[in-house]
Amino acid sequence: MKKYISDLRLVSTEELSSDYFLMKFTSNEPLPEMLPGQFVEVKVDNSPTTFLRRPISVNYVDKETNELWLLIHAIGDGTRVLSALPVNSIVNMVYPLGNSFTMPEKASERLLLVGGGVGTAPMLYLGAQLYAHGFHPTFLLGARTASGILQLEHFERFGAVFCTTEDGTMGEKGFVTQHSVLASQPAFSRIYSCGPKPMMMAVASYARKNNIPCEVSLENTMACGVGACLCCVEDTQKGNVCVCTEGPVFNINQLKWPI
């Protein structure tokens, strides 16, 4: 897929929850095609301690309004400056980068999309694309507390949504891998996941135990985003590979996780 460097204009920023921001960008040109799981390298200006671009997952692409949605967790200097930008700011992006989630083979497949924290971001776009292709995905979203469950109303447009919170303030109490929907029948035939690494490892472990194909999206620290610097490598069955080009989506069988 052709990659672009473009200046996008910030349309709106909405604080969904403390430190979580939904930022919508548009362009004068029609946005290029983006696949679920792909990411954008965002240039952050006016942050003296931010040198590199910030890799951010595609949260959603609204073709009607020509908008690209990014879900930002403002945890460092770069993401904080980004989330505080005024509307109409021009932000430079290199995109679309990376591979994408594999689309299911059969129309009858029962799909589970598991997201945790800001890792729910690519699950929305994946869910939207699956829905557009006639699938009815099931979403399982996890957070520490109710305010960490983001974009619920958007997920509900594309499938059934189940939640877990560690404190029990929304959905079932506990971790995603403890949710009762996992025991529902017929069993899920494919799992996609993105979130904190311990969560993804637990999901991967569940998938392997139950012999369910599973893909996870990694977020190793990156510099270039285009496979030039070899900084973001993950140790895989093929050796060290760049997460930015060979990933960010990996089948769990490619990884050397101790699961």
């Binding site: 301690t49 990156m222 510099a223 070899l230 490598v233 993950e234 050796g239 060290n240």
Partner: peptide
């Protein structure tokens, strides 16, 4: 050469450190 294990990069003020190790 397999290069060095991850993490191989650290962002620093006005720069970055790398330890790719000639992969």
């Amino acid at each position: 050469r397999e290069g060095n294990p991850y993490p191989r990069m650290a962002e620093t003020p006005s720069g970055m450190l790398n330890a790719v190790g000639l992969q």
